[in-house]
């Protein structure tokens, strides 16, 4: 068990390293950061000066390892745009995004799992059809558009919630719903198919032959097996919520990491973009690791090889 977690952690580290490498090269090969900072019309001298000032005249691998060395020392570089240490920027804004992501995940769980379970237990009933309808619609709705419609409906026409901002819990209701809704289809379908599959498994037939029926059968025999795959995907979805916060935060004017990302892209602020990609990847990898550990605790086949 310990060994399993250790191996998983090593793999997670390797993935994070690879991702940072990929992002660094993609962002730095695709463009000339010095030119981006200087602007389109800058003279060659200005560009060269900037290049020297930010150390951009060195070969890519050297720059990467300098960047990586900085990251390991806790130095994430300086933002070209805000002229502040990136780490400071990220730290200022992370809290809001974490709140938003967790709230969104709760929305997903509260809608998707009960709906998926009810659909699985009553296949082809009205509730199954409704769940399928919800999944298909939620999958097809453009997330940013849903945000705007929510604002029109629940902040303007029926003013229950504020239009934008991040001061009180009321500010987070609409954004959390919008961000959470995007994961509902995947989790709902997974819960449904997982539970249907489990309910058809031989060991459920065994339990039925021992007299188990209804709620007892579900609680004591089906649920844990059906939820094992859901946990992994929930963790993945939580990781993706951070990346997905770009849209939600820009629509609801929430001052979190997502908005920072959009602003730094539009300001050609490569160090900040790079750092955010790295942070989001680390969050994703950490969540995946957490899911692996939870699965190992719940599934003896992993725990005891």
């Amino acid at each position: 068990m310990l060994k399993y977690i250790l191996l998983r952690s090593l793999l997670a580290l390797a993935v994070a390293f690879t991702v940072s490498l990929a992002a660094f090269f993609l962002l730095n090969v695709a463009t000339d950061p010095a030119q981006a900072i200087a602007g389109e019309d800058a003279t060659q001298e200005v560009v060269d000066m900037i290049r020297a000032r930010y150390g951009l005249d060195q070969p890519l691998p050297v720059r990467y390892f300098e960047w990586l060395g900085g990251v390991l020392r806790g130095d994430f570089g300086e933002s070209y745009y805000w002229h502040k240490p990136v780490a400071e920027l990220v730290a200022e804004r992370a809290g809001v995004t974490i709140t938003l992501a967790l709230a969104a995940l709760s929305v997903t769980i509260l809608i998707a799992i009960p709906l998926g379970a009810l659909a699985a237990l009553n296949p082809n009933s009205w509730i199954d059809r409704m769940a399928l309808g919800v999944a298909v619609s939620a999958q097809a709705v453009p997330n940013f558009w849903l945000g705007l419609i929510m604002i029109i409906l629940f902040a303007v026409m029926i003013p229950i919630f504020p239009v934008s901002g991040d001061d009180t819990w009321r500010h987070f209701v609409l954004p959390a719903f919008v961000l959470g809704a995007s994961s509902v289809p995947a989790i709902m379908r997974l819960t449904r198919t997982g539970l249907i599959e489990v309910m058809g498994a031989d060991y459920i037939r065994t339990a039925r032959s021992k007299g188990f029926r209804g709620g007892a059968l579900l609680r004591r025999h089906a649920l844990r097996n059906a939820l094992l795959p859901v946990i992994s995907v929930l963790a993945v979805q939580l990781g993706q919520k951070f990346g997905g916060s770009v849209i939600t935060e820009s629509i609801f004017a929430i001052n979190g990491l997502g908005r920072l990302a959009l602003e730094s892209i539009l300001g050609a602020d490569i160090p900040t973009v790079q750092m955010l990609i790295f942070v989001f990847a680390i969050v994703f990898v950490a969540m995946n690791l957490l899911a692996d550990i939870i699965n190992a605790i719940l599934d003896p086949r992993i725990r005891i090889g």
């Binding site: 991702v19 962002l27 990346g243």
Partner: peptide, 21 residues
């Protein structure tokens, strides 16, 4: 491994940055 790395990348953010650049 490539799959895990790709999943870990924030896709929208990377796409935005690349299209912009």
């Amino acid at each position: 491994f490539a799959l895990t790395a790709q999943l870990a990348l924030p896709g929208l953010l990377l796409a935005m940055a690349l299209v912009f650049i």
